[in-house]
Structure formats: structure tokens, C-alpha cells
Design a protein around this nucleic acid. Structure first.
Ligand SMILES: [Mn+2]
Ligand SMILES: [Mn+2]
Ligand SMILES: [Mn+2]
Ligand SMILES: [Mn+2]
Lengths: 218, 218
DNA sequence: AAAAAAGTTTAGACATGTCTAAAAATTTAG
DNA sequence: CTAAATTTTTAGACATGTCTAAACTTTTTT
């Protein structure tokens, strides 16, 4: 049996390895989970014993096939629940992450299958994040983070890569949601901040915000 | 913060005290939860410290107002989730209890409120068990356990007071579900077993089964 | 190529929740 | 009303997951 804590570690490792390459460091995991590096070291040994990760002391960690499969399944459940909460229970997209953090640990394959069917097998969650299929495949999109676009490019917001409330509330304030058309006006080389046009309004946002917006160019 | 284990103890105490009166014994709780009497003693001390129960060593335990409120809330969540699983995800009534045992511990008042609204504020769950309201009131019914009826009485099954799979599967085999019309034909004094008529079929069931069937007489 | 800085692991402690075995209290019988 | 049986509590242990402080590697600077 895999515990709730173990599931969270596997999910964190997968999440980090998707945004970087090579082995995942102890500190990165500690940062992601909000725990101490010492706790992470302890847990990595346990996950290694269970053949869920490949771990060499001081050299970082990576998921085994088995570990990857568990992690992907947790993400699948997280995003299916988020979809249910927004589509059926009328939650706001900024309010679902915390609840889904709990729901993702409910153990019942039957439940996940039926929830998926109930939702009509959605490919993306309310944040535009891809929902892994039952067999672990993750739908891909040809989108680019807004901060990588060149000046003058038009595009549409297809998803965000962060789903915490303060970030999403800020986007809502900027009138940005999934589907919003954006034009990149100007990139400031000093701090990589950018000017954008939304509808007829001009806005200025930091690189930190821009990098979490996935754009499909027109 | 109240933990998952604490919630289960409170629920068990409430559940036992509804089917008996006076203080709840350590052994009864151990039996209900499937743990040792020693563990129960340990936990009762902790619940006492948190003002969730009134506990005197060797003299049994009862819920405080606060404890009762938590316990009722857990039962509310359990039964709302069971309703969702059966009504919306097409689960069989025998398959939902185990999953609801997990879902009942999800912490989000918002979620419960919205789920309740989504389900149209149901008064009873798929087993005919009453769903406590948000403010802790439990709908009552004027029903009688089948084993308390007198011979020759007709009635309709309004609910069951046990929702474990083996019991519910047996009922399904007997063609008994919520709404089924039953006539009590004969009570055997030797073992309190009874003969009943369902549609045009005569069946014989034990007292153990009969006592878990709630009947509304015609 | 040391020395300093940064990152990681170990040691020892603590909280929660569980168990078995032994001790103590209560209830039931004789 | 004592003695036996039952119930309950305590004692001591263990598993999980966390922490801080100290020790140990690895990387970066000088
Ligand atoms: Mn999320
Ligand atoms: Mn999401
Ligand atoms: Mn149930
Ligand atoms: Mn039920």
C-alpha cells in the first residue's frame, strides 16, 4: 500500500522533473512540498525500498516506471476532481486546488473511472492542464509560455502552469482566463517584464506571471 | 484541527449511542472500529482533552455538544457522498459505503454545501438512511424494524440500518430494495426468524436480517 | 588546490496512532 | 460477601512522518 505522504512525494518529483531535466534534487522536493530537506532524505530511502524511485545519495532522484505510474495517476485524479468541482459544483477556478489536494488521494479505481465517464473524459482541467488518460498518457499541446513569444505576436491563452489562488485571482483581475486573446506588445530586457494587449486594454506584467501562461499563436 | 482517526471515533460513538442508551463502552467502540480496547482507551483520553467527549475511567463515554456536532457532520458527508455515487456515478448501493468512508473525511465546508445543492438537498441516502442537515438536525421517519411488526401486517421498506456489501447483496438476491412491499406472514418464536411475502413469493429470513429493515406500515 | 559556501544526509527527538501483555477495576456468580 | 470472570486501563513497544542541529559531500570561489 502506498500512503498519502508517499503519493505527495511522487507527485512532487514528477512535477519538478517535468519542468527541468535530469535528476531531481532533495532541496527542490523540500521546496515543492514545504518540508525540510532532512524529511525528504528520509522519505527517499523509503521510496527507494519500495522501488518507486531510483536514488543515489547526494546525486538526486528519479522515478521508476512504477513510481511514475503512481504519480501520474495522482495527477489524473487531481485534475478530474478539479474539473468536477468547476463544471458541476460551480467552484471558481481559484478555489479548487486545495480541495483537489485532498480528493486526489481517495483510493478507488472504480470511482476514478466513473468520474471520468461522468465528466465525458475531459482532456484538460479548468486551468488548461492536461489530464492523463487511464493508461498514463498525457495529452500534449503546441503551446508556448507567454514570456518566450516574440514582440508583436498574437495568441490565445490555452492554460496556466500554476493553479494557486493568489495567481489565479490576479489573472482574473487582469481579465485573463482560458481562451483570452493576447497580443505581446513589448519585452523589457531589464527585468523580462512584458507589455500585453487584452481586448483594447494595455497591461504590464512580470516575467514571473508571463512564464505561467501557455499561449497558442494564431 | 480534528484528525481522520478522531473523526472515526466520534462517528463510532454516535453510531453506538443511537442504537442504545446511556454511556458507550470501550469494547463497543473497539468492536465498531475494529481496533483494540487499549487503543480506544488511549484515544478517549485525547478526545477528552479536546473537549469532544465526556469520559470517566471505567464508566464509559458520551459525546459533548461539540463532539456530537463533528460526528453528525461526518455522517452528513458520508451520506451525501453515497447519494452522489449512486445517483450520479451509477454505483450499486452495495458498493458505495467503502468509498464514502474515505470521502467523508474531506475537509471543505464549501464542498459539502455545494454537493448538497447539486444533489437537491436529499433527505435520505441510497439506503434510506436520513441525511443530517447543515445545522445537525436528523430527519425522522415513523418506521419500525421488520422484526417488531406483528403477523399479517403489510408495509413498505423505507430503509436499511446496515450498509455493508454482503448484507445488501443478500437483500438484492431476495428482491428487496427501498420501496419494496412486504407482508409479514409468520414469526417463529424459536429463533425469531420470520416468513414474509414479497410480490407473490414467500421468503424466510433470520431476525438478524429483519431487524435491519425499516418498514412503514400501510 | 585549498577554503568557503551550498546542498545533503544522519542523529536524535517528538507527535500520532496502533499493538500485546500485564495490572487494575467492575461486574457477575456462587 | 467473597471469588471468578469480564472489562478496562496502563506499560512498553513499534511504525510513520516530521523537525532541528550536527556531520558530511559536492560545488563554487579565490
Ligand atoms: Mn491543482
Ligand atoms: Mn489544475
Ligand atoms: Mn455507509
Ligand atoms: Mn448509507
Amino acid at each position: 500500500m502506498i500512503t498519502l505522504a508517499e503519493e505527495n512525494y511522487l507527485k512532487a518529483i514528477l512535477s519538478i522533473s517535468l519542468n527541468s531535466d535530469g535528476k531531481v534534487s532533495t532541496n527542490a522536493i523540500a521546496g515543492e512540498i514545504g518540508t525540510s530537506a532532512a524529511s525528504v532524505s528520509d522519505m527517499l530511502k523509503k521510496l527507494q525500498d519500495k522501488k518507486l524511485v531510483k536514488y543515489k545519495k547526494y546525486k538526486g532522484v528519479s522515478l521508476t516506471k512504477k513510481g511514475n505510474s503512481f504519480a501520474t495517476s495522482v495527477i489524473r485524479k487531481h485534475r478530474l476532481w478539479e474539473t468536477f468541482l468547476v463544471n458541476n459544483l460551480n467552484f471558481d477556478w481559484g478555489e479548487v486546488h486545495y480541495v483537489a489536494e485532498q480528493l486526489e488521494h481517495i483510493k478507488s479505481e472504480e470511482l476514478v473511472d466513473r468520474l471520468d465517464a461522468f465528466l465525458d473524459c475531459p482532456k484538460f482541467d479548468p486551468h488548461g492542464e492536461p489530464i492523463p488518460t487511464k493508461d498514463g498518457k498525457i495529452p500534449t499541446t503546441n503551446t508556448i509560455p507567454l514570456n518566450k513569444l516574440s514582440e508583436g505576436t498574437n495568441g490565445k491563452v490555452m492554460g496556466v502552469t500554476l493553479d494557486e489562488k493568489p495567481f489565479l485571482d490576479y489573472l482574473t483581475k487582469l481579465n485573463i482566463s482560458i481562451g483570452t486573446e493576447i497580443k505581446l506588445l513589448e519585452k523589457i530586457s531589464f527585468d523580462q517584464s512584458i507589455s500585453i494587449k487584452i481586448g483594447n486594454t494595455k497591461q504590464h506584467i512580470s516575467n514571473d506571471v508571463a512564464k505561467h501562461l501557455l499561449i497558442k499563436t494564431n
